[in-house]
Amino acid sequence: MKYYLKTKFKIEYLLFLSVCFLIIRCNDTSEAYKPGQIQKINPESESYLKHEEIAVSPPPFSDGVFPCNDCHAFRKPNPVRRKLEWHEDITDIFNHDSENRWCLDCHDLIKRDSLRLASGKLLDFKESHKLCGQCHGDKLRDWKVGVHGRRTGEWNGKKEYYLCVSCHNPHSPKFKPIKPEAPPFREDEEIK
């Protein structure tokens, strides 16, 4: 019950504190995930691939947002679904079944630096593909064998995988249209 208690004063005070802390943390370069740094994950034993480990890209956090606890340690957890007073960049675009889901369907209420499976099991951000796979099992299966998603490296050896969230914004996952490269100059060699 104690998490449910809140007073307006407390909330504002905590907000102020967390903003201060965020500003301090922004200059700190010792984040857990750096862009371009390769993390190793262990695919489950049912993996179709021969390789013990596959390398995946690090989670694509926006600047200064991780670890979440830098701010959330000073906020009282509130499990009630509501309009947030923070994270507008996310709430504005959120359309991942937004009618039925919100933050705490994937993020843990207490352990802010973890994701949370429906079973209650906590998950590191670098294993977010397992979270996506709860609903999109067919895609996860194809991703593991190298058929869904993009990968680079060797066709017969070491590959780098990209996490689901490297291509799909988890809060707005549909692939966005992009600008095409220039069309070819000549007409004479197209197949008709």
């Binding site: 179709y48 058929v147 998603g149 993009r150 680079t152 490296g153 060797e154 066709w155 017969n156 692939f175």
Partner: peptide
């Protein structure tokens, strides 16, 4: 041993490549 350039650049991962004689390759799975 590397993937073709078009496989690596494709932003949607539409391009797949591998050894047809290897039953565990991506291409055989497809």
């Amino acid at each position: 041993g590397k993937y073709p350039a078009c496989v690596e650049i494709c932003p949607v991962g539409a391009r797949k490549f591998g050894n047809l004689l290897d039953p565990e390759s991506e291409i055989r799975y497809i």
